[in-house]
Design a binder for these strands. Structure first.
Lengths: 187, 187
DNA sequence: CTCGATCCATACGCTGACGTATGGATCGTA
DNA sequence: TACGATCCATACGTCAGCGTATGGATCGAG
């Protein structure tokens, strides 16, 4: 009756789950084994040590939140504004955002992780620029809007404040509308 | 010769420093004692346990990054736009931002910390609203700009991407100029 | 100089987590 | 059924970190 296969991928998935809910220090071999219903015996058959699991976990995550997301948005033809709204919708629905926050915190202590996040930020910002540039003439405008958009994405998951009688998603919508507007005056 | 006084405040300060550079799990009693040049013997004279130190540390931080900052901005008379620029300048210069990021990460696992951060966010957003409302008629505009401004503050410390030939502070300036502009069109 | 208050050093017990070693248990295939 | 490949259980050694206990060490006041 005992399930005989706990494949490599199952450990990685459990690790991402633990990372999301408890941060890097919660990714403990014995705890993962417990959540998978097995003992840690098998873990050391798949992985040489804990670090090997962390590396593979980062590989998996990185691909999922950059390449896969961009591919989904690009898969259906639409104008750039619609793609940006689609992007935000995808980002807002990702329940795995906790993982990203945990990784960003971790990156401040681990140079390897920091380098990976750096790459993720650059690829995302480059994609944002490419979309904004399609309806935004001024180069400075493109850069400012891209940074504001990305900041909104990051910040909206961090900031825990009330907005009076408006819901969080309503306020987000207001902000996005303004980021997608035709023109901005500078102060 | 041996320094006889390592006051309570010194432990709190060392804890904040450790929090900034290594996160909550780096706030270890024995490590703090080491960085202060003493053994942990004295620690348990001041504090009942590690949690007591963490609580006092949060009290100290909370006051420093909300009340003290607002008081500094309000201390000199200026128009609301100048105050907002002052606020951003202060925020950008704060070297203790790493502390804030570590606390935000921690808050996802600790309800008490989460409640404190929630309060901090509300007080800061309320202050932003009060400033934007002074030159911004529409209520939705005030809310959207406040959230974007706060997101920019948070996000700019997280996002690690290059901006071509422009420096990070230049791009930030571009974004702030737009947040302070007279009017925005909606998409 | 004495003495109590304040602060520190050292040694200890305990727990949780990593990694190792070794002997199974289960599965696919012939 | 036999057997090798794959996966798991258990016990163990080691180490880091918390909290405790106890005996100092230093300082200010009188």
């Amino acid at each position: 009756m005992a399930k005989v296969r706990t494949p490599r991928g199952a450990w990685v998935e459990a690790a991402l789950q633990a990372m999301a809910s408890g941060g890097p220090d919660a990714v403990r071999v014995e705890a993962l084994a417990g959540s998978l219903g097995v003992s840690k015996g098998g873990f050391y058959w798949h992985f040489t040590d804990r670090q090997a699991l962390l590396d593979e976990m980062l590989d998996t995550w990185e691909k999922a939140v950059v390449e896969d997301v961009i591919a989904r948005v690009e898969s259906q033809p639409a104008d750039p504004r619609a793609k940006l709204r689609h992007l935000f919708a995808l980002a807002s629905s990702v329940d795995g955002f906790a993982t990203e926050l945990a990784l960003r915190d971790w990156s401040r202590r681990d140079p390897d992780v920091a380098a990976r996040l750096h790459g993720v930020d650059n690829r995302r910002m480059e994609y944002l620029r490419s979309l904004f540039a399609q309806f935004c003439g001024d180069e400075d405008d493109v850069e400012a809007r891209s940074l504001l958009a990305y900041s909104l994405f990051i910040g909206s998951y961090f900031i825990a404040s009330a907005h009076g009688d408006k819901s969080r998603s309503q306020v987000l919508q207001l902000a996005i509308d303004r980021l997608l507007s035709d023109s901005w005056g500078a102060a």
